[in-house]
C-alpha cells in the first residue's frame, strides 16, 4: 500500500518536471520566433514591395531623378569594393592579434588590460569609429573621402569581432596538438603556421564573415567620412580611361554604398522611390545572406578535413 503511494508521488514529480520541460521548450520556441518572425516579416515585406522593381536594369543603372530609371550600380559596386578593402585589412590584423594573444602573450596584467579593451571596443557605437576615421584617415593620412578610408574604417569596426572569433577558434584546438608539435622541436611560429592556423581556419572564417555581414549594413560611419549620395560613375578600373588610371586609383575614388542609396530613396517624396528602396533593401539582405551562406559552407568544407 505504502509502495503504490510512493510510486504515485514519484510519478507526480516526474509529471511536474515534464510539464516544466515542455513549458520551457515552448518558451524557447517563442523567444526564437520573435527574432525569426521579425526578420521574415521585414524580408517578405521588402520582397513584396520591391520585387516588381528588380530587373537587370536595376543592377546596371546609375541613380536617377526618375525612379523607374534609377538603379544601384554605383551602390553595389561601392559596397563590394569597400568590403574587399575591409576584408583585406581586418583579416591579417585581426588574426595576427588573436594568434598573438592566444599563443604568444605572457599572462600578465598588461595582457588582461588589452583583452578588456578589445571586448569593450566591440561595444563602441559605430559613429565613433566614423569620427575617428574622419580625423585619421580622411585628413591626417590624406586618403580623402574614398573607398580606402571607408574600407579601413569598417575594418576597425569589425576588428574586435575578428580577434574574438580567432581566439575562440584557437582555444577549441586540444592542447595535445600543441604539446605534440613542441615535443617534435617546433617553434611557436612553426606550431602556429602548421597546426593552429589550419585547424582554426574554419572558425576564423566564420568570425570574419559575421563581422563583414555587420559591416555591409553600416551607414553611420560611412556617412561621417563622407560617402556621397549621388554618384553616377564607377571607380576607375586599373589601366583604363584617359589618362589611364593606375593600379590602385580605385582606392581613392569617391563612392556610395547600398545602405546610403536606400536611405536617400526612403527620404524622397515620390512613392516610386520607396519601391526602389525596398528593392535595394531586398538585395542588401540577399548579399548578407549570401555571405553568411558562404561562411556556413566554408566551415563545413574545412571541418570535414580535420579529425583529432
Amino acid at each position: 500500500m505504502m509502495q503504490t503511494q510512493d510510486i504515485q508521488a514519484i510519478r507526480d514529480i516526474i509529471r511536474r518536471a515534464k510539464r516544466w520541460d515542455a513549458f520551457f521548450g515552448v518558451l524557447g520556441i517563442l523567444a526564437l520566433m520573435v527574432g525569426v518572425l521579425t526578420f521574415m516579416t521585414l524580408f517578405v515585406d521588402m520582397a513584396i514591395q520591391g520585387m516588381g522593381r528588380i530587373d537587370a536594369n536595376f543592377f546596371t543603372n546609375f541613380p536617377s531623378r526618375r525612379a523607374e530609371h534609377a538603379g544601384i550600380l554605383s551602390a553595389w559596386v561601392g559596397t563590394l569594393l569597400v568590403m574587399l578593402v575591409t576584408g583585406l585589412a581586418a583579416v591579417p590584423l585581426g588574426v595576427a592579434a588573436g594568434v598573438y594573444l592566444e599563443e604568444y602573450a605572457p599572462k600578465n596584467w598588461l595582457t588582461d588590460v588589452i583583452e578588456i579593451n578589445i571586448t569593450n571596443l566591440a561595444g563602441v557605437p559605430s559613429i565613433v569609429y566614423g569620427l575617428l576615421a574622419l580625423g585619421l584617415f580622411v585628413y591626417q593620412f590624406g586618403f580623402g573621402q574614398s573607398i580606402l578610408s571607408a574600407g579601413l574604417t569598417l575594418a576597425l569596426l569589425i576588428l574586435p569581432v575578428v580577434i574574438v572569433a580567432t581566439r575562440e577558434a584557437i582555444r577549441a584546438i586540444p592542447q595535445i596538438i600543441r604539446e605534440g608539435s613542441y615535443a617534435c622541436g617546433a617553434t611557436t611560429w612553426q606550431t602556429v603556421k602548421d597546426h593552429i592556423l589550419p585547424y582554426s581556419s574554419a572558425g576564423i572564417l566564420t568570425g570574419v564573415i559575421i563581422g563583414m555581414a555587420r559591416a555591409i549594413g553600416e551607414t553611420a560611419p560611412i556617412i561621417t567620412i563622407g560617402a556621397l549620395t549621388f554618384i553616377a560613375f564607377l571607380p576607375p578600373l586599373p589601366f583604363t580611361g584617359v589618362p589611364p588610371a593606375g593600379l590602385l586609383d580605385w582606392l581613392f575614388a569617391p563612392f556610395t554604398v547600398m545602405p546610403i542609396q536606400m536611405f536617400n530613396w526612403t527620404s524622397r517624396p515620390e512613392a516610386a522611390f520607396q519601391t526602389n528602396a525596398a528593392a535595394a533593401g531586398f538585395i542588401l539582405v540577399l548579399m548578407t545572406l549570401a555571405m553568411n551562406g558562404t561562411a556556413i559552407w566554408l566551415r563545413y568544407r574545412l571541418r570535414k578535413n580535420i579529425t583529432w
Partner: peptide, 16 residues
Amino acid sequence: LVAAVGATAATGAYAQ
C-alpha cells in the same frame, strides 16, 4: 603594393 598605395596617396587622387 604598400609602396604603390603610399605613392598614390602622396601624389593625390586620380586626376580626372
